[in-house]
Design a protein around this nucleic acid. Sequence first.
DNA 1: GCAGACTGGGAAACCGCTTTCCAGGAGGTC
DNA 2: GACCTCCTGGAAAGCGGTTTCCCAGTCTGC
Lengths: 330, 330
Amino acid sequence: MVTLEDVARQAGVSLATASRVLNGSTRQVGAGLRAKVERAADELGYRANIAAQTLARGASNVIGIVVHDLTDPYFAALADGVMRAAAGEGLLVMVGTTHRDPEQEIAYVATLNAQRVRAVLLAGSRVDDPEVTGRLRGELGRYLDTGGRVACVGQDLLDVDTVAPANREGAAALARSLAGLGHTRFAVLAGPPGLMTAADRCAGFRDALLAEGLPEPVVIHGPFDRDGGHAAARETGAATCVFAVNDVMAVGALASYRERGISVPGDVSVAGFDDIATLRDHTPALTTVRLPLADMGARALGLALAARDKPVVEHVTGEVVLRESVRALA
Amino acid sequence: MVTLEDVARQAGVSLATASRVLNGSTRQVGAGLRAKVERAADELGYRANIAAQTLARGASNVIGIVVHDLTDPYFAALADGVMRAAAGEGLLVMVGTTHRDPEQEIAYVATLNAQRVRAVLLAGSRVDDPEVTGRLRGELGRYLDTGGRVACVGQDLLDVDTVAPANREGAAALARSLAGLGHTRFAVLAGPPGLMTAADRCAGFRDALLAEGLPEPVVIHGPFDRDGGHAAARETGAATCVFAVNDVMAVGALASYRERGISVPGDVSVAGFDDIATLRDHTPALTTVRLPLADMGARALGLALAARDKPVVEHVTGEVVLRESVRALA
DNA sequence: GCAGACTGGGAAACCGCTTTCCAGGAGGTC
DNA sequence: GACCTCCTGGAAAGCGGTTTCCCAGTCTGC
């Protein structure tokens, strides 16, 4: 393992000079020595030890992002946005997946803190559990106190910089569009009761329906994934229009209806939320609310990196995209 | 920022003792002191500085994985497998995405080397360019020479531990299945000419057809993604059966046929490769070759971690899955 | 021609932790 | 009771860099 000292010796200069040449410094180094050092480093195949740099500088060039599940395209898109933005800033990305276990999330924050990462990005929905949220806040607080930067994509619950998708408003806009198509009997595949994203979308949808003077929708809870949508779709009864609180669930519902010979949108209209790119070629094409996922990830990184006194909340609006999976009632 | 020294002082013990208590050591520490140290650490909210640990220990608990694109479900599934396996080993994961730029891949290997990560996992297809491959090998060699561990998912071209999907054999088995259905005029949406995965799948498919005494398939090159499949599908001419060298391309092809009013499988049968989970609800359901992606990721990590003298190649076989997107010819 | 400001180079302190080495005390044996 | 060994605790030497501080040499301006 070749060290900076080896390089310095080979180049016949001091450690300090070698450091200044190879690892950016404000100080100038004469062209002659500079060339000698660079050649020595090249010959020896020197690679700076980043652990040592991090220790000496007191700051690392790594950021951490913790998501629920990379195989969920929602998080993949978000992570991709973050990684592109990070690459632009010369930052490396450490990804943690919690598979929806809040304890894992807390543990990851602790680990990232130990790594002294430059920033931590938390993506994905909070669960509605004050005890767990409290412990997470505690762990984040420790990190923030020592100069850490944190941003969150999702609900604004943690008193940190947040990119908050307008779940309520998006779902409400969707509800109004669907109501405008003449539907009156709705069902919501609502996901788990304690998951804030799911709850917000469900509430926004419901409230908008009521505001339109329409009857209360049937609300069916279940897991937040494809199989959850698939199972919940069995209980939509006489509803003519079904809103799944995310696209992946909507796809599960579509599959369920197809298996049972129920036509979409002929017999029932289906809408989702997120507008996941990978799912856009589904038939029937899914009506949904588009969220600029990659962009949200990039903005979260931007927020985290820009030091600030007060936490900022950036709201991101969704755009209703009507596609074949819904139809107007005669 | 509270350091181990702060903890030691508060507990009234030496630095060495505090270190032994808090960060696993072979040495025993008396129960009394142990308790004092633990209490002090807790009160102060101590978090070990991992950069310092890495430097002192000379080994980190981070592994790196470099993939092309996280939003491609193929890589997401692979990465997920790696991350689950890594979590089981107490390792953290640093993810790099190259967006198919080989230079980026080389740069990432250099960076991960600088980070002194415990292992580097390379996923995704190599391009057939000796110059670039040579530079990548050089960079890997530097890392290996200093004790790094490397494994690769894909072609066995780098002289490192490799988990190699049986692309040729899988495509050949698929070809035989499709031929068995009575098809004789085939087209292959073959991806870029220089991409080894694509080339192997294409060659395996073609060779199997010829071995069956069937005519040469039409081979259409193009990008390895959804849009590539979509575009290439316009040129399949009179073929009754089309093989896209991955599922994402196949979905693009499906969309293309749908737009043009060509029925699948009525007018043309379509098959893919990979059996991406997110795509399984597509209609018509895609015939494909299933690869155990998450498992392959986990195995790659296992290979990298198990120190060994000679590089090992583990072959992974794919399983043909016939679904609605193909039909038997009368 | 000279004081003063600059410039580029090197010695050494320091970042926070691990671990070797040493010392002192407890426990065991004859 | 003397001698050994075993065990636990502490002092200190790194790990590989960065950066402060100091110094000698070079410019500048008058």
